[in-house]
Simulated assay, not measured.
Amino acid sequence: MSRIVYVNGEYVSEEEAKISVFDRGFLMADAVYEVTSVLDGKLIDFDGHAARLARSLAELDMASPVSHEELLAIHREMVARNGIEDGLIYLQVTRGNPGDRDFVFPDPEKVRPGIVLFTQSKPGLADNPAAQVGMKVISIPDIRWGRRDIKTVQLLYPSMGKMMAKKAGCDDAWFVEEDGVVTEGTSNNAYIVKGSKIITRHLSEDILHGITRAAVLRIAKEAQMAVEERAFTVEEAKCADEAFVTSASAFVMPVVEIDGAMLGQGKPGPVAKRMREIYLEESRKAAI
């Protein structure tokens, strides 16, 4: 059965969905995106994703094509029309179609931003078996542009990073700067655990301001767990007791190996497992 997608104000089948070849999202990667998880037919952390979308648009001097209330209504309609119980909603906003290719931004008074949403059904999303065994990651040079805090669709290098990891027989890659400091994963925020202390990179333009990250750190502090927001190196990570990543689609995912070095007992540690459990429990309660 064909999915229903949302394209610039219309709900159409995926076969009928079209954007212009002159859309700047297609030509220039001049677009931002968000991915919101759906559990039990409800949206997880919607307000956080909507707020980050607004921030990304503002940083690129791009207007939003819809209001917050309209965006929520569209998300709910997409869940209903596609019968999503567990899955994801992908949203992309582009600067629009100026009518011809040009490096110069079009006049915002004359060009309306484009918006596209589609769903991905993922039954049992919260019961991912990978969480029981943990992930293996490799480190790769971080050669992305500097504004990683803006969630743009410039995803070629992250995609290449995941392919490098796959070729190495691993699950994902962590980006590392020249001084050996970890920035983040290809599509997630990175953490290490020493004793009972959770360590993760501080917010800046160097990393994405993860919505799941914010929720997990809040939950950790409420549980009176020590949290330290600072940079850490790959070598420090290899000596950690545990590691994990967070994202909207993976929630809290344990990491058991970095560049071939086994962490702890080579299996998900108690902190990562507990954070995943609490996060899922709290997220389901707050879902809308």
Rank of each mutant, 00 (worst) to 15 (best):
A250G: 10
V32Q: 05
M253S: 01
I84F: 00
A272Q: 02
I4C: 07
A243D: 03
W145S: 10
A287R: 02
T119I: 01
V181I: 15
R284S: 06
G169C: 03
W174Q: 03
C239A: 15
S2F: 06
I211K: 05
P108I: 07
K122D: 00
Q265H: 10
R81V: 02
A17W: 04
R148L: 08
D45A: 13
P270S: 13
K285R: 15
E242R: 01
V176Y: 04
E222I: 06
R52Q: 12
V153K: 07
N8P: 09
D107W: 06
F118W: 14
M1L: 13
S196L: 07
A226K: 13
G41H: 04
D241A: 07
A54Y: 02
A231M: 12
A130D: 10
V181P: 03
K197N: 07
A250M: 09
Y90E: 05
S159E: 06
E177T: 13
L117V: 09
D45H: 15
I278Q: 06
D61R: 12
A126L: 00
R24K: 10
I19A: 08
Q154W: 10
A231R: 13
R276M: 04
A73K: 15
A50Y: 01
R218M: 09
N188C: 13
F46Q: 01
Q132K: 15
E77S: 14
V182A: 11
S159K: 13
F232L: 08
N8F: 11
S196K: 15
A240D: 04
S159L: 14
I258H: 06
E77A: 14
L88P: 00
R213G: 01
V12N: 02
K162P: 03
L60K: 11
W145R: 12
R147P: 01
V133H: 13
D102N: 14
F26Q: 13
K273S: 12
T200K: 05
K110T: 15
R101M: 10
G83V: 00
V227E: 09
I4K: 09
I44E: 00
Y279L: 11
G9A: 08
I4G: 00
S2I: 09
K273G: 10
A54L: 07
K221A: 08
I44Y: 02
A130L: 15
V193T: 02
R52P: 05
Y279D: 00
G264C: 06
S187C: 10
D100Q: 15
L208W: 01
S247A: 15
G9S: 09
L263R: 04
R95Q: 02
Y6D: 06
A220Q: 10
L91P: 00
V66S: 02
G260D: 11
G9K: 08
Q224T: 14
L43N: 04
L217E: 05
G180W: 12
V252C: 09
I258Y: 05
M28T: 02
G269E: 05
I288G: 11
V93L: 10
A286M: 13
R230S: 08
S139D: 06
G87H: 00
L72I: 14
E34P: 03
K273Y: 01
I198V: 12
P270D: 12
E228M: 05
I199W: 04
E34G: 03
I198L: 12
A240E: 05
L280N: 05
I219D: 09
V38R: 03
E222C: 04
T183R: 11
S204R: 07
S20N: 09
T233Y: 02
M135W: 14
V252D: 08
F26T: 15
M275W: 07
